[in-house]
Amino acid sequence: MNQINEELRQYILSEFLPGEQPSNLRDDTPLTTSGIVDSVGLLRLVGFIEEHYGIVVEAHDANVANFDRIADMAAFIERKRGAAA
């Protein structure tokens, strides 16, 4: 799980928060509800997750519950991978 969190953190920092200190992007920092990641950004984030983790994110999965925080995304990825295994 920690590795996924760090990979997501690196991606989000480079794509949406260039120049930010990694420590300021916590696992529970709101991303979509705070406006850090907008609707177009969410598409890119979903694309990254699908490609990097080899999972399919259905349209109904791309919601606040799964994608607002790094912790939620990592848990979602783990669940998807578990279901596919």
Partner: peptide
């Protein structure tokens, strides 16, 4: 922090202006 600034802008401006 940049996170602070992003959140501030999302409350002050339409998203396409952030």
């Amino acid at each position: 922090s940049i996170v602070d600034m992003k959140v501030f802008c999302s409350q002050a401006l339409p998203s396409y202006m952030s």
